[in-house]
């Protein structure tokens, strides 16, 4: 479901080999996302809504990816979470 909100959500990962395909997938799936790199971490900001898709990560990683694996390297997030096997969504519902 689309949201009208443009309030920023974000997700942050450790900057390591395991997170490259996750970050690449998120950047591919979210055209409005902005990448902010800090020492040892990568923060991805996006207005309103950000989606993490299992399928895209699997493509980038070249293997079947279990979406719950993102928790191993996840540092933080902002926004309301909705999680299923295929998608991990962060969004704000109000403007």
């Amino acid at each position: 479901m689309a949201t009208n909100s443009t309030q920023p959500v974000f997700i942050a990962f450790q900057d390591n080999n395991d997170t490259r395909p996750i970050i690449d997938a998120i950047m591919a799936d979210n055209p409005n996302a902005k990448l902010n790199e800090m020492p040892a971490l990568v923060k991805i900001d996006c207005p309103g809504r950000l989606v993490v898709k299992r399928e895209t990560i699997s493509e980038h990683a070249g293997r079947d990816f279990d979406l719950r694996e993102i928790y191993i390297n996840l540092i933080s997030l902002a926004g309301e979470v909705d999680e299923s096997e295929d998608e991990f969504v962060l969004e704000w519902k109000s403007r």
């Binding site: 909100s5 309030q7 920023p8 959500v9 974000f10 902002a78 926004g79 309301e80 704000w92 519902k93 109000s94 403007r95």
Partner: peptide
Amino acid sequence: NGGALFADLAR
């Protein structure tokens, strides 16, 4: 980020 959160809770 806190601003976004409280905008969301305004409802």
